[in-house]
């Protein structure tokens, strides 16, 4: 099972910043000796840099055009425009940006869509400019920019970095189907380091996804992080065992703003971060501490009835995904310490 997942994990990484095996194979066939292969790979990489740079400068011009002409028509013309633009960005080998553009249509559901859309355009603009000036950026931020643009990072290079060993609580997971693949995000929280991590895996739709990280368990493991200014995505490099540790420790509502500010200072494009909150009372539209300070839920989350049911109006531990528009509850722990997926 694991082997299958792994194989697909590599094939399925278009748009997620991993290597592209199909392309590698083509190069391997083209070049016969080792030196030729390396040269071919270099040429290929240079070609890609050129295509991405051209694609992103076209994006910059497109964004400036939109804002110059006015975005009032986006509701009518947006879907077709973004589709077209996303396709051109895929051709330009910038799958990360292409994905962001393809997801723009989500803002149209909101009442304040003009503000949300301007925000998204502004961050895309920032990304294109940052890529253009990448040479001047500190290395971690440059890596973040390249990852967001969609440059591949191989598993091998990630596994070659210094790993972080900790007791990692598996605090949340979510599956999302995209193009006949199920993308599974598993969020982890380190007991000693206090670090957050996200392990991404892909499985063809209809097959059981990778179940090696079970919600509610705690694993003693080495995690290798993908490079970046605010690293979150990680691989399990080595597992030492399963620790029986009970519900994870959590932070408080009042500490969340500083934590998020730190994440965004390092990576202004961050739009997802896992949080474990202890002692929060779920409300109909947010999570409150006992002083009544509340973090709002994402509008699409609806009323968190299961979470409310478990809490009964009393403080509980909740794992949630932070997003710019509010929290998406992931997990809670009941009175008996049992894990409840939300």
């Amino acid at each position: 099972m694991r082997r299958v997942t792994k194989r697909w994990g590599q094939v399925a990484t278009r748009g997620t910043g991993d290597a592209e095996p199909g392309r590698d194979r083509a190069i391997a066939i083209a070049g016969t000796d080792a030196g030729g292969r390396a040269a071919a790979r270099r040429a290929q990489a240079e070609q890609r840099e050129g295509r991405v740079a051209a694609g992103l400068s076209e994006l910059e011009r497109w964004l400036a055009d939109q804002v110059a002409q006015g975005i009032a028509q986006a509701r009518q013309t947006g879907l077709a425009d973004w589709d077209d633009l996303a396709r051109r960005l895929v051709d330009a080998q910038a799958p990360g940006v292409a994905g962001t553009v393809a997801r723009l249509s989500r803002v149209l559901h909101a009442e304040d869509w003009p503000g949300l859309l301007l925000g998204e355009y502004a961050l895309l603009h920032l990304l294109a400019v940052a890529h253009r000036r990448a040479a001047a950026l500190p290395e971690p931020l440059r890596q973040t920019v390249r990852a967001r643009v969609g440059f591949p990072v191989t598993r091998e290079s990630v596994l070659a970095t210094a790993a972080v060993r900790d007791h990692w609580d598996v605090v949340g997971s979510r599956d999302e189907e995209q193009e006949r693949l199920v993308a599974r995000r598993v969020w982890l929280a380190g007991r000693t380091t206090g670090r957050a991590a996200m392990v991404l895996s892909f499985t063809p739709a209809g097959q059981p996804p990778d179940a090696s990280l079970a919600l509610g368990t705690t694993i003693d493991a080495d995690l290798a992080f993908y490079p970046g200014a605010s690293p979150l995505r990680a691989l399990v490099a080595e597992r030492y065992g399963l620790a029986d540790a009970g519900p994870p420790p959590g932070t408080t509502v009042s500490r969340v703003p500083a934590l998020i500010a730190e994440v965004l200072t390092a990576d202004p494009w961050a739009d997802s971060w896992p949080l474990v909150l202890a002692g929060v009372v779920p409300c109909l539209d947010g999570l409150a501490d006992e002083e009544g300070n509340a973090l709002p839920l994402h509008p699409s989350a609806g009323v968190p009835w299961r979470l409310l049911a478990v809490s009964g109006g009393r403080p509980v531990t909740v794992a949630a995904e932070w997003t710019p528009r509010g929290l998406l509850p992931l997990t809670t722990w009941d009175e008996e310490g049992g894990v409840v997926r939300l």
């Binding site: 509502v253 009042s254 969340v256 703003p257 998020i260 500010a261 965004l264 200072t265 009372v281 779920p282 409300c283 109909l284 539209d285 947010g286 999570l287 409150a288 501490d289 009544g292 300070n293 509340a294 973090l295 709002p296 409310l308 009964g312 109006g313 009393r314 710019p324």
Partner: peptide, 16 residues
Amino acid sequence: TRAGRRPGRGGPPAPA
């Protein structure tokens, strides 16, 4: 704005 958002006021329901 995203980085500087402060918690709002929440009205938790009375306990069960």
